[in-house]
């Protein structure tokens, strides 16, 4: 079992996201929205299953589909659980329909969330759902470190978080002259950590080239910061990632780096 888990970083990702879901069920009352989570997981797997049967996708891609389903469950909130079916269709469909030279343009879960929140009147994201509990931060941190080591994307997360931290300190601590507790409050939200360690580090939608990837992470952090604190949109991370990932296939094509493979 352990060797199997080590063979593919997605296993750790699945275990990690399941742990966060369990946290939500245990402490945040998510048993109330369990039906929409269930639909998200099942529909992501079934749609990917269809793609495997009729589109020739590899069987192991089911793992990616499960990660997408877990991502939707963790982040997207809907009025009608059936909307999760649409979210799953958008997320998985986009991977197969919007492709360019072997790369898809968006992180599947992020794409579905952005499209649904923007176009539908029944979906939203709750950025404060995790609160500031130290327990969830420790959990996110440790699982994050294990995964990022395995997929060699720790640099993206580190640079993204550092850039945001520096910008927050400059703006809130140094320029606006707020108390230090404001900076701490901004930087210890569960959503920020979860996004930094899990969402933006998807190796399929970050540049393969190291230098470019680091530059890209800085740009992403800057854009997130701008949307959140100058356009006053609390769900900034969703929108900045949505705007920044489409340039990744072009960067990859230009730098001619080898495509990332999940399987060792």
């Amino acid at each position: 079992m352990l060797t199997r888990i080590q063979s593919d970083a997605r296993y750790v990702q699945i275990i990690g996201q399941t742990a966060f879901l369990c946290w939500g069920i245990l402490f945040l009352g998510w048993q109330e929205i369990a039906s929409s989570m269930f639909i998200a997981l099942v529909s992501c797997l079934s749609i990917q299953g269809l793609a495997i049967m009729f589109g020739g996708a590899p069987v192991h891609s089911l793992r990616s589909a499960l990660i997408t389903g877990l991502g939707l469950s963790l982040l997207l909130r809907v009025n009608d659980p059936l909307l999760m079916l649409l979210a799953a269709a958008l997320a998985i469909g986009q991977k197969f329909l919007l492709r360019w030279r072997g790369y898809h343009f968006w992180n599947p879960a992020n794409f579905a969330i952005a499209i649904l929140v923007f176009f539908s009147d029944d979906a939203w994201v709750s950025p404060a759902q995790w609160g500031q509990a130290i327990g969830i931060l420790v959990l996110i941190f440790f699982i994050g470190v294990v995964i990022l080591r395995q997929i060699h994307r720790w640099d993206t997360a580190l640079i993204y978080m550092t850039t945001i931290s520096i910008l927050v300190i400059i703006r809130f601590q140094w320029y606006l002259d707020w108390d230090f507790s404001v900076t701490i409050h901004q930087l210890t939200t569960g959503s920020f950590w979860l996004y930094s360690l899990f969402m933006i580090t998807d190796p399929m939608s970050t540049p393969q080239n190291k230098g470019w990837r680091r530059m890209w992470a800085i740009g992403l952090a800057g854009l997130t910061f701008y949307i959140q604190f100058f356009m006053f949109i609390p769900t900034a991370a969703v929108w900045s990632l949505f705007l920044m990932t489409p340039c990744v296939p072009f960067i990859n094509e230009w730098t001619k780096e080898k495509k990332f493979s999940w399987i060792k």
Binding site: Y11, I14, T18, I25, L26, Q31, P58, H60, L62, L66
Partner: peptide
């Protein structure tokens, strides 16, 4: 009861997935 039911459901779902996820079929 609901909470533990869902928790158990979630954990077994993922464990079963990992257990049956067949590497040879890649």
């Amino acid at each position: 009861q609901r909470k533990w039911l869902w928790l158990l459901g979630m954990l077994s779902f993922v464990s079963v997935f990992i257990f049956f996820s067949n590497r040879k079929l890649k």
